[in-house]
């Protein structure tokens, strides 16, 4: 349920780290401009090189009443080591944006830049929610099933890289946070939560997974369906899959690799044989539908869960549509007070 004041959604300000993305600052500015036209209640605070931002903004259709700019002279590049870069550049755009969120100038942060720098900047400026030991980087992926009132084809997997070695406590916390997020974003009242393991039996997996399984089984507020295997990820057996950052990251990269390989194979087939080309043409509407469903531009970004403030990490290759959608996701999370939902979940 979106928070409303009368019939109007509450105004929300989203800080965008404009710098350090694969497509350059202008693409993020265009995304924010799109957001200013589509969502009257969302205000954007663009953080980065003011000259570049202003040049891009002046050429783009936007609503100037809903956009402000904070100049930040530096930024962290994709290939830089996050810790070293932030130490050398305390006024890097992502650090300035995180500070502004902390100070209440914005309600959430969206960045398509260096993921590590984003997480580190948040860790320095935001507070972990009481009961959360480590934050989790979540991501969504397309599945065969749909879920929730919105018939969302995406499932959530966490952690995919923030906490390489998670304890049983961490896994339980991730389950609570993922469940709260899915409830809010997918409008799914009872999201199915599962642990990723090497078998569905409760005793399968390393000790931390077995212990987390036992504890989650006793939590009435979590719709825990037990363990799932890798094969269940694309099937959509669970709405939220919980794992540690090491395994999650391997899974995520494999899913991306499979998607890219399928696309390359289709392109190869199209060039190689007239018969295959005809076959692909006959399947074109279906292929388009699959492309629409699996297009990460549509879902915008993935959250870092566990902090008292919201950070949505957009893909580094995000174009304007994905940036705008990441802003909408951030606004929705803020409006529905995800932090409160997580705190309440952890109390139980």
């Amino acid at each position: 349920m979106e928070a409303m004041v009368g019939t109007q959604p509450q105004p929300v300000t989203i800080a965008f780290d404009v710098m350090g993305t694969d497509h350059g600052p202008a693409e993020v500015v265009r995304g924010a401009a799109m957001l200013s036209l589509e969502s009257p209640h969302i205000h954007t605070l663009l953080v980065g090189d003011r000259t570049l931002i202003d040049e891009a903004l002046a050429e783009t259709k936007h609503n100037g009443e809903r956009i402000s700019v904070q100049h930040a002279a530096d930024f962290v590049g994709m290939d830089e080591k996050p810790g070293e870069a932030l130490a050398r550049k305390p006024n890097a755009s992502v650090a300035v944006a995180a500070r502004l969120v902390k100070e209440g100038e914005a309600d959430a942060l969206v960045s398509a830049g260096n993921t590590g720098a984003g997480v580190l900047a948040c860790a320095r400026h935001f507070q972990l929610i009481p009961g959360v030991r480590r934050a989790a980087l979540a991501t969504v992926y397309p599945t065969r099933s749909v879920r929730g009132a919105k018939e969302d084809p995406f499932s959530l997997i966490l952690d995919v890289g923030a906490t390489v070695e998670a304890t049983a406590d961490d896994l339980v916390t991730f389950a609570v946070m993922g469940s709260a997020y899915a409830r809010i974003i997918s409008k799914n009242e009872r999201p199915k939560v599962a642990l990723l393991s090497n078998g569905v039996e409760p005793q399968k997996g390393p000790p931390r997974v077995v212990e987390a399984h036992a504890r989650l089984s006793e939590m009435a507020d979590i719709n825990f369906i037990g363990n799932v295997e890798g094969i269940d990820i694309p099937k959509g057996t669970a709405d939220v899959i919980v794992t540690d950052g090491f395994v999650g990251n391997v899974c995520l990269k494999m899913l991306e690799g499979v998607h890219d390989t399928v696309v390359e194979l289709a392109q190869y087939a199209y060039k190689e044989s007239l018969r295959w080309r005809a076959g692909l043409a006959m399947l074109s509407s279906g292929i388009q539908r699959i492309k629409d469903i699996t297009d990460w531009n549509q879902y915008g970004g993935a959250p870092i869960l566990g902090f008292d403030k919201i950070f949505i990490k957009a893909h580094g290759r995000s174009k304007s549509r994905a940036i705008a959608n990441a802003g909408k996701v951030a606004a929705k999370v803020v409006a529905n007070n995800l932090g409160h939902a997580i705190r309440e979940g952890l109390k139980k």
Binding site: H43, L57, G64, E65, I67, S68
Partner: peptide, 12 residues
């Protein structure tokens, strides 16, 4: 927000 953004827009 809209008024202060409008002010800054002109400054920029």
């Amino acid at each position: 927000i809209t008024l202060s953004n409008s002010f800054q827009d002109l400054l920029r």
